[in-house]
Design a protein around this nucleic acid. Structure first.
Lengths: 199, 199
DNA sequence: GCCCAATTTGGTCGTACGCCCAAAGTAGCA
DNA sequence: TGCTACTTTGGGCGTACGACCAAATTGGGC
């Protein structure tokens, strides 16, 4: 669809395509996944409606492409920064601070939830998103093991990943919910020592 | 809109209204909140499209009414059964077993997530759902305090509530995710003792 | 057995949608 | 400079939607 010829023209097409993707991402957060339309994307991207169907097979194709890319990058960035911390306290503090930046009602938070939901009805998105989440969990588990968590790093990482998304969800309904106030319970969750790890 | 007259006719109207609500709930899970249409609800309920706008001001009004009712009842039931357990171990085991019944792709799970998402764009739903969640958290915190959790019951309850919804979300993408395997970390999370509760 | 309010019917109106396509435009390459 | 592939334009087709309403129907109260 865009392969094997001149360079400059290809670059122009790529730039337009990227603008369409960016516009789609904004709109998913603003109006919701299923209310993103050909004409809406085109208007936001400063293009004609017909262009959308030149670059993408369908509106759904555009949305899946956009969502997969941005979620993968988001999870990758968080994992990279989190695992750069060499102890649980500072890592958790950073994570909770980062979580505070997502109010649950901003476009990025909504996009994440919309993508989860859409994945249950779109096989390709289901596969790609599942792989991204799985990778995130594995990375967190490795980080925990590196910090000396010997008992159930995989389970702890799974709970942490779910909790993060759950908090984004709940913060949308309760703006007063402060992630930083949850450090105590979460620290216990991620610590492997304590009185009950094997039984 | 349906007040102050004969009984039998009112009952008939109520029954029809209930059928519309039930149909709407099913469809939200099947096709998604924003793809539920007047005609779809009517067909599922075995009624004519015009009826929807006799009983409800709009399709959105119908969806908000339906979702608020069912989520409130769902949270109430879970809270009631959970707090009936008099120790952490059996309570947590029951909760994780119950969680196993929601695959994340069944209509009930999807409805919950759809409602969360829709609440960010519909003020009335935002208010009602926020109150329901807040009540759930408070109930869980009370339960924990009753079990001797003295340090940070509110924070622990908040994390637990978020984790539950997060797990429903993640299970939709990963059917192999077994809630029962997460008892260890979650038990640490909810226990108040341990080595780090005050600092 | 009649009356009237509650309920249901069946159809219409205007709008917006996704997808498609023929034609025009644009820019590297020979 | 002319060729060719890539990109963009602008409009059109068929479909489905939400909302609305006048007329018909139903059934309990008098």
């Amino acid at each position: 669809m865009a392969r094997g010829a001149a360079q400059g023209t290809l670059d122009r097409g790529r730039a337009t395509r990227d603008r369409l993707v960016a516009a789609a991402l904004e709109l998913v957060g603003e109006v919701g996944w299923s209310r993103v339309t050909t004409r809406l994307v085109a208007e936001r991207a400063g293009a004609r409606p017909g262009l959308v169907h030149y670059h993408f097979a369908s509106v759904e194709d555009l949305l899946v492409t956009a969502a997969t890319g941005v979620v993968r990058q988001m999870l990758g960035d968080v994992l990279g920064e989190l695992t750069a911390h060499r102890d649980l306290d500072t890592g958790l503090a950073w994570l909770l601070g980062e979580l505070g930046r997502y109010t649950g009602t901003d476009p990025a938070s909504l996009l994440l939830t919309e993508a989860f939901l859409a994945a249950s009805r779109i096989p390709r998105l289901h596969t790609d998103l599942g792989a991204a989440i799985s990778g995130f969990r594995a990375g967190v588990a490795d980080w925990l093991r590196g910090l000396g968590h010997t008992a159930d790093a995989d389970a702890a990482a799974t709970v942490l990943a779910a909790t993060i998304d759950g908090l984004v969800l709940h913060r949308a309904l309760d703006p007063d919910l402060d992630p930083a106030a949850l450090a105590g319970p979460l620290h216990r969750l991620l610590a492997s020592g304590g009185g009950r790890t094997t039984t």
